[in-house]
């Protein structure tokens, strides 16, 4: 089981690095927001996986809250870019 979780976490770290490169490179605010959205989803999955590794049920609540806040953040940024805020 340890091997499977190690492989999964290393794939997720690679994905995180690619999204972070896109987040730094841009070129527009929209591209950065897309990268932020992807990073949020990867982080939610990683928190759930780590909750299993450490056997703490309370971390799952943290993941749920992070998913909600990330979604609201992306919506707010999108409305701001659209000029409707």
């Amino acid at each position: 089981m340890t091997i499977i979780i190690t492989i999964a976490l290393s794939f997720m770290v690679l994905g995180f690095i690619f999204s972070a490169i896109r987040f730094v490179k841009g070129p527009t605010a929209g591209d950065r927001t897309v990268a932020l959205d992807t990073i949020t989803t990867i982080a939610v999955a990683a928190i759930v996986l780590l909750a299993y590794v450490f056997q703490r049920f309370i971390y799952v609540d943290v993941a749920l809250l992070y998913a909600v806040l990330g979604f609201i953040g992306v919506i707010v940024i999108a409305r701001y870019l659209e000029g409707a805020l």
Binding site: I4, I7, A8, F11, L14, G15, F18, R22, T38, T41
Partner: peptide, 20 residues
Amino acid sequence: GGTFIIIGSIFLFLGALGIF
């Protein structure tokens, strides 16, 4: 469970690669 976890992490990686 392990199979689902591996498949999920591969697709998360592919999504980030697509963004890149």
